[in-house]
Amino acid sequence: MSEVIVVTSGKGGVGKTTTSASIAMGLARRGHKVVVIDFDVGLRNLDLIMGCERRVVYDFVNVINGDCTLKQALIKDKRQENLSILAASQTRDKDALTQEGVERVLNELREEFDYIICDSPAGIEKGAFLAMYFADRAVVVVNPEVSSVRDSDRILGLLASKTRRAESGDGKIAEHLLLTRYSAKRVADGDMLSLKDVEEILGIQVLGVIPESEEVLQSSNSGNPVILDADSNAGQAYDDAVARLLGENRPLRFMEPEKKGLLKRLFGGG
């Protein structure tokens, strides 16, 4: 039985694609057959984060329009053979994705893959709507910052009403909170909303907290999902999140400010 998981947020730039790439890679590394789809028509980026941008021949819209087969459009990851990527189209036609088309492709993917990760575009337009419509679970990516939290609440409202599960009364979509760019130090200083604050405001269960980390940019620079960087805090936090997604019980890490040595404390920095 395969599962469709949407990675969504409302607001842009909070880490949806970074998260989609790492969750997909993490699930694949654990032996599952995974496909990750970029729903951001016109603004394709998942291919860059996954490091396969030069291997895109056909895209999601080509498959929907029947220009190619699904198999031709799927890009096999070179690091993990049971992971595939379906790139977004760069067309400017915002109606290129249709509900019937998306459903058809997802049904075909369900036959082959255990997990289908849908990387949603920002906003609440058609692309975002279609990315979430067929989902069984949702990972809501949130930054501890007012506009991101407010937009996420809006998305939670849509998940509860504008999805196939909601419409058919087929049970609620499971909603998971993934808090990214978290700075334990700023939370301790009272400058940043804490995990508890965000949980309280949004009322959903936490899947993971990804600490603000330099390695995220370095990973995207090199086209390697940050979860592959086992030395980085962000990579480890993503690995924990994937384990929790699969039902493992793991305590949250990186929730306390790092203790600094005396010299650093005196002279600052870091």
Partner: peptide, 28 residues
């Protein structure tokens, strides 16, 4: 840093953010 010790303490803006969000989200 050492210099920070002499700066005046900032207000807890995270609390303010939380209060504002709770109101606007309830309304939404």
């Amino acid at each position: 840093g050492l210099l920070d010790l002499f700066r005046s303490k900032q207000k807890n803006t995270a609390n303010l953010a939380k209060q504002r969000l709770q109101i606007i989200i309830a309304q939404g």
